[in-house]
Design a protein around this nucleic acid. Sequence first.
DNA 1: TAATTAATTGCGGTTTTATGCAATATTAAA
DNA 2: TTTAATATTGCATAAAACCGCAATTAATTA
Lengths: 248, 248
Amino acid sequence: MLKKERQAYILHNINLHNRLLVGDLSIEIKVSEDTIRRDLQELSDHGKLIKVHGGALSKSFHNSFNSASIYSIESKKIIAQKAASIIKDGMFVHTTGGTTIIEMAKALPESLHATFITGSVPAAFEYMLHPNIEIILIGDKLSKTSQITVGGSAISSIKDIRADLCILGINAFDLQHGLTDNDWDIVQVKKAMIESSEKLVLLTISEKLNTSQRIRICETKEVDILITELAPTSDILTQFIKEGIEVL
Amino acid sequence: MLKKERQAYILHNINLHNRLLVGDLSIEIKVSEDTIRRDLQELSDHGKLIKVHGGALSKSFHNSFNSASIYSIESKKIIAQKAASIIKDGMFVHTTGGTTIIEMAKALPESLHATFITGSVPAAFEYMLHPNIEIILIGDKLSKTSQITVGGSAISSIKDIRADLCILGINAFDLQHGLTDNDWDIVQVKKAMIESSEKLVLLTISEKLNTSQRIRICETKEVDILITELAPTSDILTQFIKEGIEVL
DNA sequence: TAATTAATTGCGGTTTTATGCAATATTAAA
DNA sequence: TTTAATATTGCATAAAACCGCAATTAATTA
């Protein structure tokens, strides 16, 4: 049994029974207790479970100290944290499915009661792990490159749902060209999402700012909030603030 | 064996068994372990699999331990193989998203060109890993317990698509009560899938045969093909053959 | 086609990782 | 407090991964 498999088995087990004993597990999968302990240590370091004397406990029991924010050095995690903070109970939120959005989904607090609308399979997967989030899946033909549904049916479904926020992980944004992308189908979907939402929120790492691509999604003035890994006081961001965009 | 062939072989293998060991594979296809490692590195770089110490794991690995207990997983793989064999190029196939279906998705040959229609997030995930499969995702409210979309909109979308096969992973089936289940929403979805397909195929481990639950999905005579882990000559299956069901 | 270039592969030596064992320290329960 | 169970630590060993190199093979170009 490979180490990763063993750890997956441990996680599965602990999510099922909420607790486990080192001794039991050692016999069950025929490795020394030391190895189990080391696995538990590692999983605990990654915040997947709580290690205690004699075994481990599921995180869902003791989730008071959610380690998510402690370790978030990485840009996307910073963005995710900021984005998660603007979503309030009861909101309806349109989202796409880029890596930044996935990070955001992971960063959502367990207490949040909200409804997410998405055509992205990996995003739906993340949302499903949260206890209090309702998910509306947008159906249509699934684009394999982007792992999101695209097409007329998807667009009309999106337009049926009036949301509070539209949170987009983006590819390119500058003042002159506005929000742009390079995939026609995705652009159509994003346009529909923007249309049927009150506020438009962009998530992006700063290096995508001041770049542009071929197809326009919307103009600069339609953007309400811009979230990057940088502090709002950062030089690159002042131009956007001048245009009336709220920068977090 | 050429590099491309070898890598294709590796991918096929890993999608089938979820895991592989460098040593095993080295012996199996008679190249050095270094070569295997380099292949795995490359495939890992392209996101086709997850490389770990000692071997590699399938990308869909995190689902593999989730609900299937180890003992029935072998049965499900046998079922998956048989099911995969009845799907031909060009077919449209309605599927649900149980563990058996997931196994089937993993067992589909890379060469298969077909279109799968599903409201299941994990199933969609699996289908996405295959190069030649088109996916139509059924949208609606996502049920967290079953990880599948349910509701009126899902049902009407399903009815819009006339398929060749409807492949259901099932909960209970006996001659007297027919096909039954215990979740109202899921039953409605399955009914719609059956209605809009030419043939109805059931996948199940044999222990679910001759059991029944509260809500009827369809009658015995509507079932075309039954697939279990047992040989078609097995005693338990003769009763179904007598009813005119094709048993694989 | 021949010659050159690039890619692929296997091998030896080195480094890293995984794991078990034993000695010691810590914890928790009687 | 005493005692039995559990953790920690350092160490040994085997397996696996990595690195550079040379031999081979495939692809490109003259």
